[in-house]
C-alpha cells in the first residue's frame, strides 16, 4: 500500500512540476527546441533545477543501497552504449520535435481532457505496444537460432 501511495504522490508532484515549469505546453517546448528562431531558453532551467534536487537524492540512496524502508533498489544495470540506445533516442528526439510532446507532458495534458493530447498519447501507447511486439519477435528469433 505504501508503495502505491508514494508512487501516486511522486506522479502528482511530477505532473504539477511539468505544469508549473511550462514543459507541459508543447508551444513552449517547441520554442525551446527552435534554436534558429526566437529561442526561449526556459526549459534548460527545468532540467537544471530537476537535476539539482534529484542528484542529491541519487547520491544519498546509491550510497545507502536500499530505499528508506529498506527495500532493494530497482535501478537500471545496463552500461553498454549500443545501437538501440542511439537509434531509439534519435527517434524520440524527432518525435519530440514534431509535436512538442514527450511522454510525461502528454499524459498530464490528457488529464485536462485535451483532445489533441489524447490522440498523441494513444499513438504513443500504440508505438510502445509495437516495440514490445517487435522486441518479443526479436527475442524469439534469437532463441530459435
Amino acid at each position: 500500500m505504501g508503495a502505491l501511495i508514494s508512487s501516486f504522490i511522486a506522479g502528482l508532484i511530477f505532473g504539477v512540476g511539468l505544469l508549473v515549469s511550462g514543459m507541459a505546453n508543447p508551444a513552449k517546448v517547441l520554442g525551446f527546441l527552435d534554436l534558429a528562431g526566437a529561442w526561449d531558453p526556459s526549459l534548460a532551467l527545468v532540467m537544471g533545477g530537476a537535476i539539482c534536487v534529484a542528484s542529491v537524492a541519487f547520491a544519498f540512496i546509491i550510497r545507502r543501497g536500499r530505499t528508506l524502508s529498506g527495500a532493494p533498489l530497482q535501478l537500471p544495470t545496463a552500461t553498454q552504449i549500443d545501437r538501440r540506445l542511439v537509434v531509439g533516442s534519435l527517434m524520440f528526439g524527432v518525435g519530440w520535435g514534431l509535436a512538442g510532446f514527450c511522454p510525461g507532458p502528454a499524459i498530464v495534458a490528457v488529464g485536462l481532457m485535451q483532445t489533441k493530447a489524447v490522440i498523441f498519447t494513444l499513438a504513443m501507447l500504440a508505438g510502445m505496444a509495437i516495440f514490445e511486439w517487435l522486441d518479443a519477435r526479436r527475442a524469439a528469433a534469437i532463441r530459435g537460432r
Binding site: 505546453n25 534519435l90 514534431l98 489533441k116 498523441f120 499513438a123 508505438g127 510502445m128
Partner: peptide
C-alpha cells in the same frame, strides 16, 4: 497549453516517441 500540430502529425509523432523511448530505454525524465 497550446498544441499546434494537426492530427496526422500528432499520430506520427506519438508513434515515433512511443517506439523510440522504449527502444532507447528512456525519455526526458
Amino acid at each position: 497549453i497550446r498544441i499546434d500540430a494537426g492530427t496526422p502529425l500528432l499520430i506520427a509523432a506519438g508513434l515515433i516517441v512511443g517506439i523510440g523511448t522504449r527502444y532507447g530505454s528512456g525519455c526526458t525524465s
